[in-house]
Design a protein around this nucleic acid. Structure first.
Lengths: 188, 188
DNA sequence: GTCTATAAGGGGATAGAC
DNA sequence: GTCTATCCCCTTATAGAC
């Protein structure tokens, strides 16, 4: 039971990492098994299909997001929380420039499918971030917190995609600085 | 010669459409051949590999972009050209909500590869748009035209990804309106 | 130039021994 | 619970007839 769970967790973490780097479609079960140091045939004991592994990767991203927002919530001021979020994004600039936002690129890939419903799962994870950001804007008493959240998260997805496409982490730094100034400029 | 070119053009158009909807990885040569109404085996007469078809899809997107900017350049005021660009994006909201930005989603997918160099090709097409937008900001005499271009194109990529992930074309309308107001607010 | 048949390889998934 | 061997399908790409 304990070692079973441990293996399952290793597989989830490996799925998240490998799928982020290679994309869901190019990633094989064998790739994930190797990264998790689990024999290929054994994977099917924990995950019945490849799609379940992709779903596990999404869960892993949601978990990481939860950890980040939990850390940020220790800050008393919602504005500082949002600025901390932007700083976390910029801190990941090298990863973003090489492979893009883990959740965003996966969502884009899954949205091309017709079946399976994994696309909706990806949307759910994005919603999680959007809702948390909206909550911060609301606490600040700003008008249209949902629109502001869309703008901030959209800017993040956009700068990640451009940094990735142009292979330039500097884009994250530059746009990040603009977002910090923007957050400071907002008044209730 | 004439029918040969016609078939090649049909294959290019089909590649652009099908790859946009299904993604490069999930799209098979047979899918493209069917959409172009060309026998599968004959495809290889025009394109030696699947990657050449993906490259052709990128060229097709670059061509569409060129047509759009050429139309916009008939407008005398660079600010109106940029607003026309945003309006064109919003006009494609239903397509964006279902499959994302054709170039952006393809760039994100190709950037996950290590070999082939198609990722750089995708970056080139994004650069094309970025450079054109930067030129408009420069004509307006605004400071930091390259940064402004990054912000505008990034916002487009971000709103396309969110609209796609949440399957909500309304996001394009909403963010589009914000961008139009932003463009109007900029002063030299 | 056009098309069919097929080779060659890879990947998801399962059977069943241990 | 763990792992090996293998089935079967799908896809790219080619050979070669027309």
């Amino acid at each position: 039971m304990k070692s079973a769970s441990a293996k399952r967790r290793r597989l989830m973490a490996a799925a998240a990492e490998v799928v982020h780097r290679q994309g869901a479609e190019r990633t094989t079960i064998a790739d994930i098994a190797r990264a998790a140091d689990v024999p290929v045939g054994n994977v099917y004991y924990y995950f019945k299909t490849k799609d379940e592994l992709v779903a596990a990767a999404l869960d892993e991203h949601a978990r990481h997001l939860g950890e980040l927002t939990a850390r940020l919530e220790r800050l008393p001021d919602p504005r500082e929380r949002l600025k901390g979020l932007v700083e976390a994004w910029v801190g990941q600039r090298d990863v973003a420039a090489r492979w893009g936002c883990p959740t965003g690129t996966l969502a884009a890939e899954l949205d091309k499918r017709d079946e399976g419903g994994l696309d909706a799962e990806a949307g759910r994870v994005i919603r999680l971030l959007l809702d948390w950001v909206e909550g911060q804007f609301r606490e600040l008493g700003l008008p249209g917190p949902d629109g502001l959240a869309l703008t901030l998260v959209g800017a993040y997805q956009g700068m990640s995609l451009l940094a990735n496409a142009l292979r330039d982490p500097g884009i994250m730094t530059r746009e990040g600085a603009r977002l910090l100034a923007w957050l400071d400029s907002l008044e209730a």
